[in-house]
Amino acid sequence: MLVDYVTRGVKAGLVAGLAFGLLVALVANPLVAFADEFGHEGETRATGDHREADTDGHHDGTTSGSHEGPAVSAAVTNGVSVVSGVLWGVLLGAVVFGAGFYFLEPAIPGTGTSKSYVLAAAGFVSVSGAPWLVFPPQPPGVEQALPAETRLPLYAGMVLLGALVCLLAGAVYGRLHADLGRIVAGAAALTPFGLLSVPVALSPSTAVTHSLPSGLATGLVGLVVLGQVLLWTVLAATYARLHRRATAERGSPVDADQIDSAVTAD
Protein backbone atom coordinates (compact mmCIF):
# COMPACT_ATOMS: atom_id res chain seq x y z
CA MET A 1 0.00 0.00 0.00
CA LEU A 2 2.86 2.37 0.84
CA VAL A 3 4.39 1.43 -2.49
CA ASP A 4 1.17 2.46 -4.29
CA TYR A 5 1.24 5.83 -2.57
CA VAL A 6 4.89 6.42 -3.37
CA THR A 7 4.37 5.41 -7.01
CA ARG A 8 1.52 7.88 -7.25
CA GLY A 9 3.65 10.52 -5.57
CA VAL A 10 6.47 9.99 -8.05
CA LYS A 11 4.03 10.26 -10.97
CA ALA A 12 2.55 13.48 -9.63
CA GLY A 13 6.08 14.71 -8.95
CA LEU A 14 7.08 13.98 -12.52
CA VAL A 15 4.17 16.04 -13.86
CA ALA A 16 4.91 18.93 -11.49
CA GLY A 17 8.64 18.60 -12.11
CA LEU A 18 8.17 18.80 -15.88
CA ALA A 19 6.08 21.95 -15.43
CA PHE A 20 8.76 23.43 -13.20
CA GLY A 21 11.51 22.31 -15.57
CA LEU A 22 9.71 24.16 -18.35
CA LEU A 23 9.63 27.28 -16.19
CA VAL A 24 13.36 26.93 -15.54
CA ALA A 25 14.09 26.40 -19.24
CA LEU A 26 11.95 29.21 -20.59
CA VAL A 27 12.12 31.84 -17.86
CA ALA A 28 14.69 31.20 -15.15
CA ASN A 29 17.66 30.21 -17.35
CA PRO A 30 17.72 33.34 -19.51
CA LEU A 31 16.75 35.62 -16.63
CA VAL A 32 19.38 34.31 -14.20
CA ALA A 33 22.05 34.43 -16.90
CA PHE A 34 21.13 38.02 -17.67
CA ALA A 35 21.14 39.02 -14.00
CA ASP A 36 24.50 37.29 -13.53
CA GLU A 37 26.03 39.27 -16.36
CA PHE A 38 24.43 42.46 -15.14
CA GLY A 39 25.48 41.94 -11.52
CA HIS A 40 29.08 41.10 -12.34
CA GLU A 41 29.33 44.02 -14.73
CA GLY A 42 28.00 46.44 -12.11
CA GLU A 43 30.30 44.94 -9.49
CA THR A 44 33.33 45.43 -11.71
CA ARG A 45 32.42 49.04 -12.35
CA ALA A 46 31.64 49.79 -8.71
CA THR A 47 34.94 48.46 -7.41
CA GLY A 48 36.86 50.13 -10.20
CA ASP A 49 38.49 46.87 -11.17
CA HIS A 50 41.56 47.41 -13.31
CA ARG A 51 40.32 44.77 -15.72
CA GLU A 52 37.26 46.85 -16.51
CA ALA A 53 38.13 47.59 -20.11
CA ASP A 54 39.14 43.99 -20.55
CA THR A 55 35.87 42.52 -19.23
CA ASP A 56 33.73 45.06 -21.04
CA GLY A 57 35.28 44.05 -24.31
CA HIS A 58 34.69 40.44 -23.34
CA HIS A 59 31.04 41.05 -22.58
CA ASP A 60 30.50 42.77 -25.90
CA GLY A 61 31.85 39.79 -27.75
CA THR A 62 30.79 36.57 -26.06
CA THR A 63 28.18 36.91 -23.36
CA SER A 64 28.36 33.32 -22.20
CA GLY A 65 31.15 33.49 -19.61
CA SER A 66 31.42 35.84 -16.66
CA HIS A 67 34.76 37.22 -15.55
CA GLU A 68 34.98 34.79 -12.66
CA GLY A 69 34.70 31.95 -15.10
CA PRO A 70 32.14 29.31 -14.03
CA ALA A 71 33.44 25.76 -13.96
CA VAL A 72 31.07 24.63 -16.71
CA SER A 73 29.66 26.16 -19.88
CA ALA A 74 26.33 27.98 -20.02
CA ALA A 75 24.77 25.18 -22.05
CA VAL A 76 25.64 22.63 -19.32
CA THR A 77 24.26 24.94 -16.63
CA ASN A 78 21.02 25.36 -18.56
CA GLY A 79 20.64 21.64 -19.23
CA VAL A 80 21.51 20.46 -15.74
CA SER A 81 19.29 23.12 -14.20
CA VAL A 82 16.27 21.92 -16.18
CA VAL A 83 16.94 18.28 -15.24
CA SER A 84 17.40 19.34 -11.61
CA GLY A 85 14.05 21.10 -11.78
CA VAL A 86 12.35 17.88 -12.91
CA LEU A 87 14.15 15.87 -10.20
CA TRP A 88 13.16 18.46 -7.62
CA GLY A 89 9.49 17.82 -8.47
CA VAL A 90 10.00 14.05 -8.31
CA LEU A 91 11.76 14.32 -4.94
CA LEU A 92 9.01 16.46 -3.41
CA GLY A 93 6.35 14.20 -4.92
CA ALA A 94 7.95 11.02 -3.59
CA VAL A 95 8.71 12.33 -0.10
CA VAL A 96 5.82 14.67 0.70
CA PHE A 97 3.06 13.17 -1.45
CA GLY A 98 4.24 9.56 -1.46
CA ALA A 99 5.46 8.73 2.03
CA GLY A 100 4.08 11.89 3.69
CA PHE A 101 0.54 11.43 2.39
CA TYR A 102 0.53 7.73 3.22
CA PHE A 103 1.52 8.20 6.85
CA LEU A 104 -0.41 11.39 7.53
CA GLU A 105 -3.58 10.85 5.50
CA PRO A 106 -5.75 9.96 8.52
CA ALA A 107 -4.56 13.07 10.35
CA ILE A 108 -4.65 15.70 7.61
CA PRO A 109 -7.58 18.11 7.99
CA GLY A 110 -10.16 18.05 5.22
CA THR A 111 -11.79 15.35 3.11
CA GLY A 112 -10.84 13.74 -0.16
CA THR A 113 -9.22 16.16 -2.57
CA SER A 114 -8.78 19.00 -0.10
CA LYS A 115 -6.28 16.90 1.87
CA SER A 116 -3.88 17.11 -1.05
CA TYR A 117 -3.99 20.88 -1.02
CA VAL A 118 -3.55 21.08 2.76
CA LEU A 119 -0.50 18.85 2.47
CA ALA A 120 0.86 20.95 -0.41
CA ALA A 121 0.50 24.10 1.69
CA ALA A 122 2.34 22.41 4.55
CA GLY A 123 5.03 21.25 2.13
CA PHE A 124 5.51 24.74 0.77
CA VAL A 125 5.76 26.21 4.27
CA SER A 126 8.31 23.56 5.33
CA VAL A 127 10.53 23.33 2.28
CA SER A 128 10.45 26.96 1.15
CA GLY A 129 8.50 29.27 3.42
CA ALA A 130 10.25 28.63 6.74
CA PRO A 131 13.84 28.78 5.39
CA TRP A 132 12.96 31.89 3.40
CA LEU A 133 12.14 33.68 6.66
CA VAL A 134 15.85 33.48 7.51
CA PHE A 135 17.28 33.45 3.99
CA PRO A 136 14.92 35.18 1.58
CA PRO A 137 15.38 34.15 -2.07
CA GLN A 138 18.17 36.22 -3.58
CA PRO A 139 18.80 37.37 -7.12
CA PRO A 140 22.05 36.04 -8.57
CA GLY A 141 25.27 37.92 -8.06
CA VAL A 142 24.61 39.00 -4.47
CA GLU A 143 27.25 38.97 -1.77
CA GLN A 144 25.92 37.19 1.31
CA ALA A 145 27.13 38.32 4.72
CA LEU A 146 27.33 34.72 5.99
CA PRO A 147 29.52 32.00 4.44
CA ALA A 148 27.80 29.00 2.84
CA GLU A 149 29.07 26.68 5.62
CA THR A 150 26.97 28.61 8.14
CA ARG A 151 23.95 29.03 5.92
CA LEU A 152 23.43 25.43 4.83
CA PRO A 153 22.90 23.90 8.31
CA LEU A 154 20.64 26.82 9.24
CA TYR A 155 18.67 26.28 6.05
CA ALA A 156 18.27 22.56 6.76
CA GLY A 157 17.28 23.35 10.34
CA MET A 158 14.56 25.71 9.18
CA VAL A 159 13.16 23.03 6.86
CA LEU A 160 12.92 20.61 9.80
CA LEU A 161 11.42 23.25 12.07
CA GLY A 162 8.90 24.17 9.37
CA ALA A 163 7.82 20.53 9.06
CA LEU A 164 7.57 20.22 12.84
CA VAL A 165 5.42 23.33 13.11
CA CYS A 166 3.11 22.05 10.36
CA LEU A 167 2.71 18.70 12.14
CA LEU A 168 1.97 20.54 15.37
CA ALA A 169 -0.64 22.70 13.64
CA GLY A 170 -2.24 19.57 12.20
CA ALA A 171 -2.29 17.92 15.62
CA VAL A 172 -3.87 20.99 17.24
CA TYR A 173 -6.56 21.07 14.56
CA GLY A 174 -7.24 17.37 14.86
CA ARG A 175 -7.65 17.60 18.62
CA LEU A 176 -9.98 20.60 18.60
CA HIS A 177 -12.17 20.43 15.53
CA ALA A 178 -14.62 17.82 16.82
CA ASP A 179 -15.44 19.82 19.95
CA LEU A 180 -14.96 23.43 18.92
CA GLY A 181 -15.78 23.41 15.23
CA ARG A 182 -13.70 24.13 12.20
CA ILE A 183 -13.20 27.86 12.54
CA VAL A 184 -11.97 27.87 16.15
CA ALA A 185 -9.77 24.84 15.52
CA GLY A 186 -8.39 26.46 12.39
CA ALA A 187 -7.55 29.63 14.28
CA ALA A 188 -5.92 27.66 17.09
CA ALA A 189 -3.89 25.73 14.52
CA LEU A 190 -2.31 28.99 13.38
CA THR A 191 -0.61 29.56 16.75
CA PRO A 192 2.23 27.00 16.24
CA PHE A 193 3.40 29.06 13.26
CA GLY A 194 4.35 31.75 15.76
CA LEU A 195 7.22 29.44 16.79
CA LEU A 196 8.90 30.26 13.49
CA SER A 197 9.49 33.82 14.66
CA VAL A 198 11.95 32.59 17.35
CA PRO A 199 14.77 31.48 14.98
CA VAL A 200 14.07 34.50 12.78
CA ALA A 201 14.71 36.79 15.75
CA LEU A 202 17.75 34.80 16.89
CA SER A 203 19.39 34.22 13.53
CA PRO A 204 22.46 36.29 12.68
CA SER A 205 22.05 39.18 10.31
CA THR A 206 21.92 38.05 6.69
CA ALA A 207 22.59 41.38 5.05
CA VAL A 208 23.29 41.20 1.35
CA THR A 209 24.66 43.62 -1.19
CA HIS A 210 24.02 43.56 -4.91
CA SER A 211 24.19 45.96 -7.75
CA LEU A 212 21.05 44.95 -9.65
CA PRO A 213 18.29 47.49 -10.28
CA SER A 214 15.63 46.95 -7.62
CA GLY A 215 12.95 46.24 -10.23
CA LEU A 216 14.93 43.35 -11.67
CA ALA A 217 15.79 42.01 -8.19
CA THR A 218 12.11 42.13 -7.13
CA GLY A 219 11.07 40.42 -10.34
CA LEU A 220 13.54 37.60 -9.78
CA VAL A 221 12.36 37.04 -6.21
CA GLY A 222 8.76 37.10 -7.42
CA LEU A 223 9.62 34.48 -10.03
CA VAL A 224 11.15 32.23 -7.36
CA VAL A 225 8.12 32.44 -5.07
CA LEU A 226 5.66 32.01 -7.91
CA GLY A 227 7.63 29.06 -9.29
CA GLN A 228 7.46 27.17 -6.00
CA VAL A 229 3.77 27.97 -5.49
CA LEU A 230 3.10 26.71 -9.02
CA LEU A 231 5.09 23.54 -8.37
CA TRP A 232 3.15 22.68 -5.22
CA THR A 233 -0.21 23.51 -6.83
CA VAL A 234 0.43 21.24 -9.82
CA LEU A 235 1.69 18.55 -7.45
CA ALA A 236 -1.44 18.69 -5.27
CA ALA A 237 -3.84 18.79 -8.23
CA THR A 238 -2.17 15.87 -10.01
CA TYR A 239 -1.89 13.80 -6.86
CA ALA A 240 -5.53 14.43 -5.95
CA ARG A 241 -6.59 13.25 -9.40
CA LEU A 242 -4.45 10.08 -9.29
CA HIS A 243 -5.54 9.31 -5.73
CA ARG A 244 -9.21 9.76 -6.57
CA ARG A 245 -8.89 7.46 -9.56
CA ALA A 246 -7.10 4.79 -7.53
CA THR A 247 -9.63 4.86 -4.69
CA ALA A 248 -12.48 4.77 -7.20
CA GLU A 249 -11.06 1.60 -8.74
CA ARG A 250 -10.79 0.05 -5.32
CA GLY A 251 -14.39 1.09 -4.70
CA SER A 252 -14.79 0.96 -0.92
CA PRO A 253 -17.91 2.72 0.38
CA VAL A 254 -15.99 5.29 2.44
CA ASP A 255 -13.88 6.23 -0.52
CA ALA A 256 -16.90 6.31 -2.83
CA ASP A 257 -18.42 8.94 -0.54
CA GLN A 258 -15.34 11.05 -0.83
CA ILE A 259 -15.30 10.66 -4.58
CA ASP A 260 -18.91 11.84 -4.85
CA SER A 261 -18.22 14.95 -2.84
CA ALA A 262 -15.03 15.59 -4.77
CA VAL A 263 -16.80 15.25 -8.10
CA THR A 264 -19.63 17.60 -7.13
CA ALA A 265 -17.05 20.02 -5.78
CA ASP A 266 -15.45 20.10 -9.20
Partner: peptide, 21 residues
Protein backbone atom coordinates in the same frame (compact mmCIF):
# COMPACT_ATOMS: atom_id res chain seq x y z
CA UNK B 1 23.61 21.33 -0.58
CA UNK B 2 26.51 20.16 -2.73
CA UNK B 3 29.07 22.97 -2.98
CA UNK B 4 31.62 21.28 -5.21
CA UNK B 5 32.30 23.88 -7.97
CA UNK B 6 31.40 21.78 -11.03
CA UNK B 7 28.13 20.53 -9.52
CA UNK B 8 27.31 23.90 -8.06
CA UNK B 9 27.85 25.84 -11.25
CA UNK B 10 25.90 23.32 -13.29
CA UNK B 11 22.87 23.66 -10.98
CA UNK B 12 23.33 27.41 -10.53
CA UNK B 13 20.18 28.45 -12.41
CA UNK B 14 18.07 25.76 -10.78
CA UNK B 15 19.10 26.78 -7.29
CA UNK B 16 18.32 30.39 -8.00
CA UNK B 17 14.97 29.45 -9.53
CA UNK B 18 14.10 27.39 -6.44
CA UNK B 19 15.25 29.99 -3.94
CA UNK B 20 17.67 27.59 -2.28
CA UNK B 21 20.50 29.27 -0.44
Amino acid sequence: FVQEPTMHDAMHNFRHATGVT
